[in-house]
Design a protein around this nucleic acid. Structure first.
Length: 465
RNA sequence: GGCCGAGUGGCAGAGUGGCUAUGCAGCGGAUUGCAAAUCCGUGGACCUCGGUUCGACUCCGGGCUCGGCCUCCA
């Protein structure tokens, strides 16, 4: 039975979908004005695993996963102006890059990927309803604001109350706002800004309303899970609740999930601090699966400290798994035994991937134990390992290929595969003749190329370090 | 200032009111022409002070430290 930590109640709760035939999840995706950094990768990976696990439980066709793209906002407009390009050229480019990064990280595409700019009608109609119902007001500067005082439960998600917020208010007083806590739903366009027509004049949506509009459009007024990074809890998600529930009068979302930050030197990795690594930068030095493993090695709600040392460690761990899988026949199986039970128990406990990985590690050891004297058992265990790891989106590559490609992407020495095989044959002839001088000469030659030879009764394997 | 979260062995990172996490690294052994890989064994931890308890790293309270949100941010 799956339990999920619900930010709304601050408790782990048994997850019961509104409709098990149609489990619905919405995750706040990227604002596309720059490359994805490791923090974005974490959201993608964390909720990719949630998606995979929900599919596992309810069936792939019974899960509807929506991850939006925010393709209009201040940062986008500013960046496009800096570059001297049309904002949509900028966003198209970064959407493309984001998809490439996601694919590299083995992220399943969501069922729907709505964009703010294609949901203007829904956005405007939602704002309209909010104004009609008295939750929002049009200011005389052309902006439309949400009147926070009109939404009684405001602050429930972030554990704040309006009094606290006012006490510590650092919120700038905006000309048109009645109250500093009010937030903008519709922004009047300045000259030369991208804009859409609306009852309040030309303008564009505020940051929060698009997610309310898109999630409602794709998933209905009331759905199961809404996710995103910790920093979205307030104000973004808080405001989404105020908007959506203000419009529908129904409960918006049952379970709110937020993943922890990636940190560098104990500080949040963020664009504003400038201390971020892009996915692309890291992929120049590590293969994508290493990043995935590194992220999944800790619980999604914990802080995740970035360091090369950790990535090296993840790399070593993956090599260990693939070494165990190497040469074993993997087949589709259903019977997963106690490994499966323990793995699923870990996943059921609020997606405890760290503990699930501990089960994989034991499988790896048991495979290695069995591989010499019980080949069938080893193969069976290998199948279990690959099947379970599939739920985490790892260990799906061909083991031989993974090991021969080595730890660093794109690194290949002067020796081609055929040449390597040839030299190995020569060396094995020398070994049969017990010509150790020649045999070691060839081994040294490989070492210079960063290739490690492994002799065994069954022959000689090689891999790149 | 308000609110939230965290503090575990060399590093990373789970978990539990009494019983092995796990990975990487270390040490000892087995194996090996030499290696590599693997296996076996092994040391090492629960911020601090009180309280509850037969017993707390685990529950409660105070303190200290760190991080986050309160303004754009995954």
């Amino acid at each position: 039975m799956l339990k999920i930590y619900n930010n709304l109640t601050r408790k782990k709760e048994l997850f019961t979908p509104i409709n098990p035939e149609n489990v619905r999840m919405y995750v706040c995706g990227m604002t596309v004005y720059d490359l994805c950094h490791l923090g974005h990768a974490r959201v993608l990976v964390a909720f990719d695993v949630v998606y995979r696990y929900l599919q596992h439980i309810y069936g792939a066709e019974h899960v509807n996963y929506v991850r939006n793209i925010t393709d209009i906002d201040d940062k986008i407009i500013n960046r496009a102006n800096e570059n001297g390009e049309v904002f949509s050229d900028l966003t198209e480019r970064f959407i493309k890059y984001m998809h490439q990064d996601a694919e590299a990280l083995n992220i399943l595409p969501p069922n729907q990927e709505p964009r703010a700019t294609t949901h203007m009608a829904g956005i405007i109609s939602m704002i309209n309803t909010l104004v009609e119902k008295g939750f929002a007001y049009a200011a005389n500067n052309g902006d439309v604001y949400y009147d926070v005082s009109q939404f009684e439960p405001y602050g429930q998600l972030s554990g704040k109350n309006i009094g606290d917020l006012q006490a510590g208010a650092r919120v700038e007083v905006d000309e048109g706002k009645d109250d500093p806590l009010d937030f903008v739903l519709w922004k009047a366009a300045k000259p030369d800004e991208p804009h859409w027509d609306s009852p309040w004049g030309k303008g564009r949506p505020g940051w929060h309303i698009e997610c309310s509009a898109m999630s409602t459009h794709c998933l209905g007024n009331h759905f199961d899970i809404h996710g995103g990074g910790m920093d979205l809890q307030f104000p973004h998600h808080e405001n989404e609740i105020a908007q959506s529930e203000g419009v529908s009068g129904e409960k918006f979302v049952n379970v709110w999930m937020h993943n922890g930050f990636v940190r560098i030197d104990n500080e949040k990795m963020s664009k504003s601090l400038g201390n971020f690594f892009t996915v692309r930068e890291i992929l120049e030095r590590y293969r994508p699966e290493v990043i995935r493993y590194f992220i999944l090695n800790s619980h999604y709600r914990s802080p995740l400290n970035y360091s090369d040392k950790q990535l090296d460690s993840a790399q070593a761990a993956l090599e260990g798994y693939y070494t165990a899988l190497r040469g074993l026949k993997v087949s589709q199986i259903e019977e997963l035994g106690r490994y499966g039970e323990r793995f699923y128990a870990a996943m059921d406990d609020d997606f405890n991937t760290a503990e699930a990985i501990a089960v994989l590690a034991e499988l790896r050891r048991d495979i290695n134990q069995a591989r010499n004297d019980d080949r069938n058992r080893a193969s069976h265990l290998a199948s279990v390992l690959v099947k379970l790891a599939g739920l985490l989106g790892i260990l799906q590559d061909d083991a031989e290929l993974f090991l021969q490609q080595g730890g660093r992407p794109g690194v290949s020495g002067d020796l081609g595969d055929a040449e390597i095989e040839n030299l190995i044959r020569q060396r094995n002839v020398a070994r049969q003749e017990k010509n150790w001088t020649e045999s070691d000469r060839i081994r040294d030659l490989f070492v210079k190329e960063g290739i490690v030879l492994e002799d065994s009764a069954k022959g000689t394997c090689w891999r790149r370090e």
